[in-house]
Design a protein around this nucleic acid. Structure first.
Lengths: 154, 154
DNA sequence: TATAATTCAGACTCTTTTATCTTTAATTTA
DNA sequence: TAAATTAAAGATAAAAGAGTCTGAATTATA
C-alpha cells in the first residue's frame, strides 16, 4: 500500500467531518471513531497532527471535538498526506541508487519524475469538496474500516 | 522509499553481474558483497530468491557463484522487483479505501490507474542491457552502498 | 579421495515501523 | 463543581524488514 494506515484513517476522518458540515459545529472524536470503527486513541493522535498542521481546529470540553480549519475546497489530499506521511514518498531515487541525481541520473530518473509529477498533481487537485461531493453521489463509501476486529476503546 | 533495501541490493548485484559478463562465467557472491559493501549472508538470501525466480543461475563449489539466467535484455527491472518485493505495490486502492473498485471508484481511482500504468511501463521497459549500457557510459554508478558501516561478514 | 570453495537452508536476533492501549492533565460548558 | 472532552506522553504489542550465524550439501581440483 502506498499510504500508511494512519494516513487513510486521517483521510476518512476528515471526509467524515466534511460530510457532517452544517449539521453542527464540532464533531467529537469519539463519535468519528465509533462510526468509522477506528481506535479512539489512535484517531485522537492522528487528528492532533492534523490540528497542528492547520487542517483541523479542535475544541475541548462539552460539545467539543474537531472541525475543518478551512473550507473543504481549500484542503487537498496532498495536505493530509504531507501532514501524516510526510513527503518521503515523493523524494529520492526510485531505485534507491546512491548518487542518483540530475548530474548522474539513473535509467529511470526521467520517467519516474514524470510519474511522480502525475501522482503529485492528482493528489494536489483532489480536495475535500470534490471528494465529499462524490460521497453524496454515492460514488464513494466511508462506512468504516470494517476489519472484523472489535476495539476496546470506542 | 518505494522499493525495499532488499530490492535495491538485488538490483545492484544483478547490474554488477551484468557488467562482469564475458570476463568469467560465475561471479562469487562473496566478491559481489565486497564490491558493493553488502552483507554477504543477506545478499546470499536475496540472490537465492533471484535464482528460484529464474533471473539468476547459481553454481556451487570452487569457481561457483551466480550468473544471469537470461541475456540482459531479457531481464527487466520489473522482473527483479516482482521477485523481491512482490506486486503488492501495484495493487489495490491508493487511498486504501474499503470497497473501492471499478463499480465504486474512489476519486483518485482513474488518475492513479494512469500513474500506475506509467510506472509499470517504465519498470517493464527498463532492462539490464540498457541499464548496464548506461553504467558503461558513466551515467550510473554502482559503486556500492557506502553507508559508512563496516560489516563483519564479507 | 581429501580438501577447499562455494551456494543452500533455516533459525535466529536486532531494529524500525505501525498500531493500539493506558494514564494523567488541561480545558470548557453547564 | 461536575461532567465532557481534547492534549500529551509514554508503554506495549505486533509485524515487517534488515542483518547474522551455523551447518549442510555440492562441486572442482589437486
Amino acid at each position: 500500500m502506498l499510504l500508511s494506515k494512519t494516513c487513510t484513517y486521517g483521510l476518512l476522518a476528515t471526509l467524515f467531518v466534511a460530510t457532517q458540515k452544517g449539521k453542527r459545529d464540532y464533531v467529537p472524536i469519539r463519535e468519528i471513531s465509533r462510526q468509522l470503527n477506528i481506535s479512539f486513541h489512535f484517531l485522537t493522535k492522528i487528528l492532533q497532527r492534523l490540528t497542528t498542521h492547520n487542517i483541523m481546529n479542535s475544541h475541548r470540553g462539552p460539545n467539543g471535538g474537531v472541525r475543518l480549519a478551512r473550507t473543504p475546497d481549500q484542503i487537498s489530499l496532498m495536505d493530509i498526506i504531507e501532514a501524516l506521511d510526510g513527503n518521503k514518498i515523493f523524494e529520492g531515487c526510485v531505485l534507491g541508487l546512491p548518487g542518483c541525481g540530475e548530474t548522474a541520473p539513473c535509467p529511470l530518473h526521467q520517467s519516474w519524475s514524470q510519474s511522480r509529477d502525475i501522482i503529485i498533481h492528482s493528489f494536489t487537485t483532489a480536495n475535500l469538496a470534490t471528494m465529499s461531493h462524490e460521497i453524496q453521489k454515492g460514488m464513494l463509501r466511508i462506512s468504516g474500516m470494517d476489519d472484523g476486529l472489535t476495539r476496546k476503546d470506542h
